[in-house]
Amino acid sequence: MNKNYIFLTILAVVIGLGILIMPETKHDNQIKPVDLLIAIDDPSRFLSTDVITDRLVKKDPTLLLIDVRTASQFNSFSIPGAINIPLDSILARSTAEIMGNKDLDKVFYSNADVTSDQAWIINKRLGYKAIYVLQGGVNKWFNTIVINEIPADTEPVEIIELYQFRKGACQYFFGNNETGSVKESNAAPKKAVVITKKATGASAGGGC
């Protein structure tokens, strides 16, 4: 009789505690709506095209560029070294593994920065850390790094230095025919293609 009562009390306490803890474990990593709004309002997630280019040129192993555009847009042009995860497969299981990698700085980009920012918000809600957005997207990247207009000699030193940096980066990615570094330049885009193929294969399952 006595034993039964003890058993019942323990059972009730366990159930009670279980009910108390349950709602928290259900949304394990999700951040609260209020916190998500604060994060959306904070512009620190935006990285400039020059910062990203600098890290690409320095072969920063912690940088992972994620192209959230469609596969066809990705195949026609993408930033060297980027992988393709279209927006609609951003929640696929294979993506979660990449997002969960704490050692990588994951930078989303699209043509402008609306789609990439939406991908960021979805992932931010799920509690992923070290995620960023490329400000201006691939359009800005292309039109500052690849297409760079020569500044006048009268421009401030900073502008001329910036131009030289961009010009150098462009030669690094796409080669400079004059200096005959064609071999090296060809290697970089090829590398990028190999990576992309792997990535598209992995993420294709979840998407359309």
Partner: peptide, 23 residues
Amino acid sequence: AMFSETPMIDMEALKTLTSAAPV
């Protein structure tokens, strides 16, 4: 054009850049 998600990548410029064209 500044904000839209339309690609503004000039493939022709890219081609001249990657192909063996004079500077």
